[in-house]
Design a protein around this nucleic acid. Structure first.
Lengths: 109, 109
DNA sequence: TAGTGGTACTAAGTTATACAAAGTAGCATG
DNA sequence: CATGCTACTTTGTATAACTTAGTACCACTA
């Protein structure tokens, strides 16, 4: 799917929160996860800027661990504020998507 | 619902296309329509910038008509390119929302 | 007739987010 | 020692929504 950029604003951050919320993970793996979830064109630069933002907003805890395969990994996990932000995200997403569903539904009645 | 700004990127333009696609209408009325659809905090400044963008991208036809209640209205209708853009929007929206639905579904399995 | 409020459009500047592009660096394999 | 995968960093750009302020038409009323 091409040029989803604008529709992904706000969405990708929510996805990253959700992914981190499931299990402690790191940037490179998150990129691969997003790709496999259907967000195929999401690249590292995008994800790392999101992670830096999450850190700056104190939504995640970070732990550095060595890797067998390359440079050390920075593992992220959600803290309490992060979990709250995640539930807020799903709430907002639910709101917007239900309005859109309604709009679309009305359109072919 | 508070602070949906980022989630609305790309979405509002799609909504405006959809609204215009149903019947010829004008900016002020579009604002009211969006508000009644649940996008309560969307204000004129936002909608008019979208309309100017649609015009610049040649997705709409425009006709100026007098109003009984105020300044003349600029009526917008979708042209062929606009209808195509609208169907593209719904396609993209469907893609993104289905991925999100899947992500959310997986989350509480 | 001055003031208020609803209708209707315009325009300048700000902010937030995704994306592009390039680079640094560790490690394994051939 | 070159290639390729892993893994993180940084700088800059584009886009879209939002903020704020302003112009202007019209009807009603105190």
């Amino acid at each position: 799917m091409e040029n989803l950029t604008e529709l992904l604003k706000g969405v990708l951050e929510g996805c990253v929160l959700e992914i981190i919320g499931r299990k402690e993970t790191y940037g490179y793996e998150i990129v691969k996860t997003l790709n496999s979830l259907g967000f195929e064109d999401v690249v590292e630069g995008t994800v790392y800027t999101i992670l830096i933002r999450l850190e700056k907003n104190k939504l995640v805890d970070i732990e550095k661990k060595p890797s067998e395969k390359g440079p050390p990994r920075k593992f992220y996990s959600l803290n309490e504020a992060g979990r709250h932000e995640l539930s807020l995200f799903w709430e907002k997403w639910g709101y917007v998507s239900s309005r859109l569903a309604q709009l679309k539904e009305d359109s072919h009645v």
